[in-house]
Amino acid sequence: MKELMYWNAISEAIAEEMARDEKVFVIGENVQESPFLATKGLVQQFGPERVMDAPLSELAIAGATVGAAMAGYRPVCDLTFADFIYCAADEVLMKAAQQYFIHNGEVGVPCVFLGVAGGGFGNGPEHSRIPAAMVMHNPGLKLAMPSNPYDAKGLMKAAIRDNNPVCFFFHKKCMPMKQAIPDEEYVIPLGQAEVKRSGTDVTVVATSYMVNLALEAAKQLEGKLSVEVIDPRTLVPLDMETIVASVKKTNRVVIIDEDTECCGVAAEIAQQINEQAFDYLDAPVSRLCAANSPIAGAAMEKYVIPQLPQVIKAIETAAGI
């Protein structure tokens, strides 16, 4: 066992996959130094031919990723901020997502779109998003959002090995996290939720960094409420089985997600719970998400993105207290 930081767990996963499969390479702006560290150190190991500092051209980078993937490579495309997926939208949403379909199921697009996501830095509307619902809304894309270093490593390895385009959003607020990582290789299959904490009174389904807030809230509510926290880890595919099993046990559920509320991740999960476990609910499914607003900058960010006190309150409300 060794301790790894969140970002280092990601770079280690990419390094292992690059060593294992010469078809894997990294492309993106500033990936050699890597401002958010997820690809740091790779150029020293694999050279600039496989860790490519690209022009400031999101469409070209994403498009080249899709093209190379269709031609047999497994690129890891770093978009820097996850927000910049909007700059690359045509190639990610229209092409990466749909080429397998358009090729009658004969040509896949195995690649990863990496982006640092979410609030925490106060940088305002264009650098603080976690565009999860938009990815979910485009069939053909998978979506992983690890909430800790262990998951980050295992999910990244699965993402690179997957035969589909996988968006991989890692969270700025998870950057300081450190965790024990086994020396042996492991892969976390896409589509397996994890019960991060078991409880009996109320189920919290939380995503990305919100998992950590939910766990902290659950700890603070100890003695008052027994809270079960589920981290889907990937939103596409979505492990409803684990969520539904928990809801059947607790009969109460709140979904906590950092993306914008309207048409969001929580809305989708809530509807699936309604369809699959309605008879088990003692109260309507509830949700806590970012407000339906651009992400405000500086000191105003915390009024748009859920914070710990709201998370605690949302759990109490869902539990009926």
Partner: peptide, 28 residues
């Protein structure tokens, strides 16, 4: 992040000044 900033303290870092035609600055 203060209310007296040119974006009212809600933009983070964006520069705006309607009077003199600074209509935005790009995050992207």
């Amino acid at each position: 992040g203060r209310a007296t900033g040119w974006g009212g303290g809600i933009t983070g870092f964006h520069a705006v000044d309607k009077e003199k035609g600074v209509l935005s600055s790009a995050g992207t």
